[in-house]
């Protein structure tokens, strides 16, 4: 049945992916609040359900029943489109990440890297348009900061991705995980991981690089004029991006779905990927609880004067190593 393979299965896969991502988002907020609370020696949410496990459900219901407010001074069409523009890239970027042996989440299209780069590039539009259309000084400053920060850290990120591409020799993420790597390739990759992780923190606007939404100077940055479900969509986009980038890092640096017996028993693949993603998400929260926010000029200096040269040097060494040893 051709139409079954072409239409029905992709729809089913997409629905499953959305369900997994939205559940992941809901419980990531719980995970983060609970962990942060433990770092602060507090209890965190513990009223709704056992261990506060029903807290995300309560939050979702609350967001849905909020009044819809569109302030009178905003640029209405752009103001309404912006939250959706932030969320859609976060949802679709998953398509090419392999979740088990030879099984990408949605489709194996041989341009996995380019898909991720292209969709990640779209992500900043939602934030910039939100800040600009809000016609609020806080929002505009938040949007400007976020766009400058995202494009500054996209450069070193791109250079590290080029280095990984040199070693992989293919745009497909499925092949990247399938192909065996030499021991020196693994070691050399892990050298890049800390830098890559810093770039990812900046790209996802996560603490300590959350300058676009510094609450003590910009209220909530680009989200200031948003409330109810529209605010939740931005929140959703940020948290799903955290999950997605963790999965990408797990795939690029730690073998994705690979683990003992994952080749023989297919369902172990997603389990291993899940464990790796949770460990990386813990790292996100740990960093947020431990490191304070830099000043904006320090942030830009670090990106342009440290990470970018490091990226170029790393890529040059990778290229030489690849030509000499492969």
């Amino acid at each position: 049945m051709d139409w079954l393979n072409l239409i029905v299965f992709p729809i089913l896969r997409t629905v499953v992916l959305f369900l997994v991502l939205l559940t992941g988002f809901a419980y990531l907020t719980w995970f983060e609040r609970k962990l942060l609370a433990r770092f602060h020696v507090r209890y965190g949410p513990n009223r709704a359900g056992k261990f506060g496990l029903l807290q995300p459900v309560a939050d979702a219901v609350k967001a849905m029943f909020k009044e819809e407010i569109v302030p009178s001074h905003v640029d209405k069409p752009i103001y309404l489109v912006a939250p959706a523009l932030a969320l859609i890239p976060a949802l679709i970027i998953w398509a090419v990440i392999p979740v088990a042996k030879d099984t990408p989440a949605i489709a194996d299209v041989g341009i996995g890297f380019l898909w991720i780069l292209a969709v990640a590039g779209l992500e900043s539009y939602g934030l910039i348009l939100a800040g600009w259309s809000s016609n609020n000084n806080y929002s505009l400053l938040g949007a400007l900061r976020s766009s400058a920060q995202m494009i500054s850290y996209e450069l070193p990120l791109g250079l590290f991705l080029v280095s990984i591409l040199i070693l992989a020799g293919s745009f497909s993420l499925v092949e990247l995980v399938d192909n065996p790597r030499a021991w020196w390739e693994w070691l050399w990759l892990w050298v890049a991981f800390p830098f890559f992780f810093i770039c990812i923190l900046a790209e996802t606007n996560r603490s300590p690089f959350d300058l676009p939404e510094t609450e003590n100077e910009l209220v909530a940055g680009y989200q200031t004029e948003y409330g109810g479900i529209k605010f939740s969509l931005f929140y959703m986009a940020e948290y799903i991006n955290m999950i997605t980038t963790s999965a990408i890092m797990a795939t690029l640096f730690f073998g994705g779905w690979r683990g003992p017996f994952a080749e023989e028993i297919v369902w172990l693949g997603p389990v291993y990927l899940f464990i790796k993603v949770v460990v990386l998400l813990f790292l996100f929260v740990w960093v947020r609880a431990s490191i304070s926010r830099p000043r904006y000029d320090q942030l830009m200096r670090f990106g342009w004067k440290f990470l970018l040269p490091v990226g170029i040097v790393y890529m040059a060494i990778t290229a030489v190593l690849a030509v000499l040893l492969k």
Partner: peptide
């Protein structure tokens, strides 16, 4: 690339429904 198109359409649909709910 058809699955990717389906994915994009469904993501847009989801965002539209979520925005319309309140």
């Amino acid at each position: 690339y058809l699955p990717l198109l389906i994915l994009i359409i469904l993501a847009m649909g989801f965002a539209a429904i979520a925005m319309g709910l309140p």
